[in-house]
């Protein structure tokens, strides 16, 4: 499955997403590219009722997820009743159309 690329500092091990040219902890400049693990938990979320121009939806839930391997990322949350700490499984799908082109990103569903 396609997904985001996160970065693990080769010097201190800090996991970062998105990309930085210097490690946020030790200023290291070499990183191992890593993929987030399959599942994670919901750290915070919001239900957006007033979406920006370019997203033709009435409502969208966005949240920050911490994957089991420490990667943290924002994504679309596809859960009926989102709750802090809930377990989620990552997916990859079009999240926005920009300039007529589908842009892919993370989506999350509750683990069964």
């Amino acid at each position: 499955m396609n997904t985001i690329t996160a970065y693990k500092c080769k010097k201190c091990g800090l996991v970062m997403y998105p990309h930085h040219f210097r490690c946020l902890k030790c200023n290291g400049r070499e990183f191992e590219e890593i993929k987030p693990s399959a599942n994670g938990k919901l750290l915070t979320y919001t239900i957006i009722e007033q979406l920006p121009w370019g997203i033709d939806e009435r409502e969208r839930v966005l949240g920050v997820v911490e994957f089991d391997n420490g990667v943290k990322a924002l994504g679309v949350i596809k859960a009926e009743n989102p709750k802090l700490g809930m377990k989620l499984k990552a997916g990859w799908e079009p999240v926005r159309v920009i300039g007529g082109e589908k842009v892919y990103g993370l989506s999350f569903q509750p683990t069964k």
Binding site: I4, Y17, P18, L43, T44, Y45, T46, I47, I48, Q50, L51, P52, W53, G54, I55, E57, R60, L62, G63, V64, A73, L74, G75, V76, L84, V95, R96, I98, V103, G105, L106
Partner: peptide, 30 residues
């Protein structure tokens, strides 16, 4: 709302439709 959202991270935030009120919403919840 979209123009103001251009200050967010282009890949890690903006593409998801995040807005400044959305960031404030996630912050407020915590």
């Amino acid at each position: 709302t979209d123009i103001v959202a251009c200050m967010t991270h282009p890949n890690a935030e903006y593409i998801y439709g995040v807005t400044l009120p959305a960031l404030a919403g996630m912050f407020t919840r915590l």
